[in-house]
Amino acid sequence: MPGQDGERLYVATSLADALAALAERGRTASVLAGATWTMRAPLRHEPQDLSYVAISKIDELRRVEVLNHEISIGACVTHAELANALAFLPECSALVQAAGNSANPAIRNVATIGGNLCASAFAAADLVPALICLDAELEIARPDGSERLTVERFLEIRSDIEPGRLVRRVIVPRTKRRSAHIRLPLRKAGDYPVASVSLAATLGPTGIVESARLAVGSVEPVARRWPLLEAGLVGRALDPRHAAEQAERLCGDFSGRDGIEAPGWYRVKVLPSLVRRAVLALQEQS
């Protein structure tokens, strides 16, 4: 029975089991997925929560289902699995690039999409802006059912989610679009990005951008869309230079976070270049 053994880690075997274990433990328990963020709590000098309910062994949370109208990604799908599962879908390039280049290979083998979304103190998460640009939603399971909300909405409320709930899956709608995720690590790879830009756009028959969603990660504490720039991209053909010029003009929309690895001004200053590269990447997809 959940919670009976007094252990600090309960490994749930099904979603119902996990929800029951969480309900029983109330505020003393947290959800544990890939554990890569939680296991570093001692280095951040954070007290570790009293106990954890692990959900990574729950089969349904580990599945990626590609349906006609949407893609359903279980919360415990790892970055590596995600990059692999969607590699054949050009419309999901942003997500594939984000999942396939984050951190390093051994971390990608363990870190999950659910964990990436829930680690609210992790500003540099790669998947978050990619999911925002793909207009993704997620489903939260609770003891009495489930609710669906957009990733953007989730980011607003994630710190205040009631105990006993967990992210069950992420849903990415399928549309005919191009997308790209451009990340800027300080080394060639192996770092978290100091800034990232995720862009998705649908093009009309003549190559005119009909709709665009662009999200910026790591620049501010939480990834978010760049609505003014999106508006500037719509109604014209993909034009990397023009996009970069607009980004340059609109950079004041962002207030970069100062970090040990990079000052805030730098994160903002590189945005036009990342935007240019993202638009170029879309241009090169056909």
Binding site: L43, L186, R187, K188, A189, G190, Y192, I260, E261
Partner: peptide, 16 residues
């Protein structure tokens, strides 16, 4: 010292 670990103290990796 601000760089308390290898996330912030970056040494060259194979690709660098």
């Amino acid at each position: 010292i601000c760089q308390a670990g290898l996330e912030t103290y970056r040494v060259p990796l194979a690709q660098d």
